[in-house]
Design a protein around this nucleic acid. Structure first.
Lengths: 238, 238
DNA sequence: GTAAATACTGTCACTACTGACAGTACCACA
DNA sequence: TGTGGTACTGTCAGTAGTGACAGTATTTAC
């Protein structure tokens, strides 16, 4: 069976797949590309911190644990680029980035190379997802390899992602009351408690009360953080 | 030059392209695939109504006008699927859908076929985008054609979309320095000035300095407001 | 009818933020 | 050699936000 035929079969199965079936398909993606390590990650942006909703992973367990324990995703410029950008992120493009170099150094001790890419995936709602692959070919071959396979990779990742959706139930929405949302909106607009109290015709203490409730419901500690979450979650009329 | 080489060239140019340059590249995508019609659409979901921010289009003008005038996007199950789903939408999958049939009937009078697909594109912020193509091959050939080209199409659409971003900005860029953005990010994460100073290993005064600059550049008066703007504009890698 | 949720208010003590006055050092560019 | 941008630091005075202790009135749901 030709390589291309294997790809078509894999694509056909991924289009139909749901839930648990995807785990074996995840393995077959790895086989098909001859990838050393790959990781599918679906993240909730709802709570204060980024919170993993779903993960499929073949990276070394110790490396993943190290990454998680040290909150390296906050320092990792590639992860940041994947979570804020649109196009696949070529790891080699970060070879001169100091933070990336540190991470590459750590990763290499676990046998992870610097030739790979991270493909951002389309999410609906307040989530972000990516598919990261460590291809591990020689640096000289990488540009050619990447061009040749980026299409197949993006398509398979997209269908894998779609099939995994049911595994990634997000946290329930923090349902703010009308007043809480209203006060939050004015805070996001740069108004102080006193100003909001004037706008809404209530006491400053009450404004504070609503904001405190909103912070608690959003699981955050400062108004700035609450605003960040509210905007992310589309609770603020733009 | 082989077809594959043309694709690689196109991809290379799209990766580097920005702004106006994308218009000729849009035409070259059409040439490459031998597509009859194609449409790139970027929509703002900000103010309740869907509002087109950016469009590139080769569909017949009269058809587009008819579509817009009659708000057919609200009835079009394919557009709805593309705007709410994750995977490319195969028009043929809707061949038995009554609303779709009506639209196919209208479209066919303008020379638009029912063999095509609509690829949803990843957006940051409160937007949605898709790339729709009318391939117009025979129905019998379509499944094979689709499997064979979906990868290339998705990749080219993704890079076109990325290159068009500057054309679809709700809000102007504020041009923060790396430090300003970094400090803003930690503020959005609920850290105090003192905590940020510990994280970054600089004095609390300096953190304040960066935040003050960020506020001025964003034209806001409070940190909460700055965070709201930064998140809205996708400047915060959360 | 009671429990829970919502909408509101008061005061105290403390911490965090904000603006305005400063300043130094380094680097790129003309 | 200057000019402008970035990265950094100090101090003071005032305003804003935060948590913990309260409390009342009204509506909604079982």
């Amino acid at each position: 069976m030709s390589q291309r035929q294997i790809y078509f079969d894999l694509l056909g199965e991924l289009e139909k797949a749901t839930g648990k079936e995807t785990e074996s398909l995840f393995g077959r993606i790895q086989e098909y590309f001859g990838i050393r390590h790959q990781s599918y990650m679906n993240i909730s942006l709802s709570s204060g911190r980024q919170n993993a909703l779903d993960m499929l992973n073949t990276f070394p367990e110790d490396l993943v644990q190290h990454y998680i324990d040290n909150d390296l995703h906050l320092v990792d410029p590639i992860a940041q680029a994947a979570l804020t950008g649109i196009t696949p992120v070529d790891w080699q493009a970060y070879i001169n980035n100091k933070n990336a170099q540190k991470l590459f150094a750590i990763a290499s001790t676990f046998g992870v190379s610097a030739t790979g890419m991270t493909i951002p995936l389309l999410c609906r709602g307040n989530q972000a997802a990516y598919f990261a692959i460590d291809v591990g070919v020689a640096v000289s071959e990488w540009p050619q390899y990447r061009r040749a396979h980026i299409g197949e990779m993006q398509v398979l990742a997209t269908y894998l992602h779609a099939a995994r959706q049911e595994m990634a139930q997000d946290l329930p929405d923090a349902d703010l009351t009308a007043r809480e949302a209203e006060v939050l909106k004015w805070t996001a607009a740069g108004k102080s408690y006193w100003e909001i109290s004037m706008i809404l015709g209530i006491s400053e203490r009450t404004v504070r009360f609503f904001m405190t409730n909103a912070r608690k419901k959003l699981g955050v500690v400062t108004n700035s953080q609450a605003v960040a979450q509210a905007v992310l979650r589309g609770m603020i009329p733009l």
